[in-house]
């Protein structure tokens, strides 16, 4: 009956023995992550080859000519010349940052607002309905957005009725508006869904804290500011750090569906570019090089975000 009590100093073996339950509970998953997530990274070797798929994969892999940093050189050259890779990278980061700036806070505000609604039924219904667009595929959603924004559509009707414009606007043909349209559509579609995790966090706030705040004479806004927000701040921080890692991969479906050839300079993102000029052209090595670049940038960004969070004294992931 020796205790599994933590914080006991000892040799490595002793520690391992003491933590045998914890090890047993985690080692299988350690194996899993090695096999399914890190073993395939051997394929990154393709980024330094001119890989062509000829029958057997391993044979193709081991017989492919080694070209060193050629593909990365191509990417760098394109970047310097402000070519398509550069544009794709720029668009990806721009849309991600816009989404981070606006799409991250809206679900939090929405969750706080829902929490303030006293009519239980209304609260439930609102929540259920608000997450519906998450389940509508982008194909269907893009069709609706296109109708809304067409020259004969309701948005133009509204603008004309309000006298904000006298000429009908072709929203989807204007590349200056694309990032904005993208951000608004994404917020609309994911608002309710993204609020779920914050709602769950809010439910865990100790009711006692509200009561003592009330005794101190705090109003509703003050309670939100001094009780609710600090309590869910760790969750917010953790999600923010993880989201920062995704800045460079903003997905591709919605950009492909709502973008068109006229707005390509603003709408083509890295994932679309990789799909089109990587695997779409059977250029597996080139595609791998882009994937590798993205992975490295993501990991670096997460680490930076994490370090910053640590420095400011908030929760961090690592």
């Amino acid at each position: 009956m020796q205790g599994t009590r933590p914080r006991k100093k000892g040799t490595l073996l002793e520690t391992l023995y003491r933590q045998r339950f914890l090890l047993a509970m985690s080692l299988p998953f350690f194996l899993w992550v090695l096999l399914f997530c890190y073993l395939p990274l051997a394929g990154w070797g393709m980024a330094f080859q001119d890989f062509k798929l000829r029958g057997d994969v391993l044979e193709s892999f081991f017989s492919a000519p080694f070209v060193g940093l050629k593909h990365f050189g191509d990417l760098w050259e394109d970047f310097v010349n402000q070519g398509r890779f550069f544009l794709a990278l720029r668009n990806t980061l721009a849309m991600s940052l816009l989404l981070l700036a606006f799409g991250f806070v809206t679900p939090i505000i929405f969750a706080l607002m829902l929490n303030e609604i006293r009519i239980k039924k209304f609260k439930r219904i609102t929540q259920t309905i608000s997450y519906l667009p998450h389940f509508i595929s982008w194909v269907v959603a893009a069709g609706m957005i296109s109708v809304m924004l067409s020259t004969e559509g309701p948005v133009n009707d509204l603008l004309i009725a309000l006298g904000l414009t006298d000429k009908r606007i072709t929203f989807l043909a204007d590349q200056n508006m694309f990032w904005g349209i993208m951000t608004v559509s994404e917020i609309w579609k994911e608002l309710g869904w993204n609020a779920i995790i914050f709602l769950a966090a809010i439910t865990s706030v100790d009711q006692g804290l509200y009561e003592s705040a009330e005794i101190d004479g705090a109003g509703r806004l003050r309670k939100i500011w001094y009780v609710t927000l600090p309590c869910i701040l760790p969750v917010i921080t953790v999600i923010l750090i993880m989201d920062i890692g995704w800045l460079i991969s903003v997905g591709f479906e919605k950009q492909m569906l709502l973008g068109n050839d006229m707005t390509r300079n603003a709408s083509e993102v890295l994932d679309v570019y990789a799909l089109k000029y990587g695997i779409g052209q059977s250029r597996y090595s080139f595609g791998t090089a882009i994937g590798m670049f993205k992975s490295v940038v993501s990991v670096v960004m997460v680490l930076i975000a994490n370090a910053l969070a640590k420095k400011t004294g908030e929760t961090s992931i690592l």
Binding site: K52, N260, D261, M262, Y277, G280, Q281, S282, Y284
Partner: peptide, 26 residues
């Protein structure tokens, strides 16, 4: 042939055409 210069070039030219023709027309 898969993964060829020609395929790349054609895709790039077609992309450029698709981008410019609507602009030219309007």
């Amino acid at each position: 042939p898969a993964d060829s210069e020609f395929g790349m070039l054609l895709a790039e030219c077609n992309d450029l055409t698709a981008q410019y023709l609507p602009m030219v027309c309007s």
